[in-house]
Amino acid sequence: MTFDQILFYVFSFWFVASSLAMIFSRNAAKAVLFLILSFFSAASIWILLEAEFLAIILILVYVGAVMVLFLFVIKMLNIDKSTLRAKFTGYLPLGLIVAVIIIAEMTLVLGGNQFGLDVVSAPARHAADYSNITVLAMQLYTTYVYPFELAAVLLLLAIIAAITLVHRNDVSRKKQSISEQVSVQAKDRVRLVSITSPKKENK
């Protein structure tokens, strides 16, 4: 067994084990922590596949931002655990049967006869001065520049949508109230003040 294979099986074991622990954990915060572990394992496998940039992005964006957002929401919402534990295993047998059938079918389709090393041979490893980021950037800023801009617009849209959704209405927002404008009286807005003018000094 080569070193590559040992790494692959170690990372795969942690990936599968932490994913299973994630879906069977009753506590949502523990599930987030297990999902973080499985994302780290996925990033390790992506590094084995020489996709270093995406692996780092997975850790920085997913673990650093998205999972922390999940944890933030879980801590903020103060969920009642007793209601979430009900009907936990009701659909477990059906789900397991479906999953086993899917895995069996996929293994038949994706097995060594179709995608083994003698069919799709492993490419040679790149040299040490190979830069994955340079290759991706060359593609991203030439061929895929319009999808890249669209992705930026999509992120802006997501920011606006998220803020608009959770923004409370009673925060001091300057908006027009037509009934108040129509029914306003002069005495509400104008205040007459009598000022005594200073007398002229006699010389």
Binding site: D4, I45, L49, M106, G116, L117, A122
Partner: peptide, 9 residues
């Protein structure tokens, strides 16, 4: 070496 089918499975 790890084959493509390992990753896919």
């Amino acid at each position: 070496m790890v084959s493509l089918s390992d990753y896919l499975i």
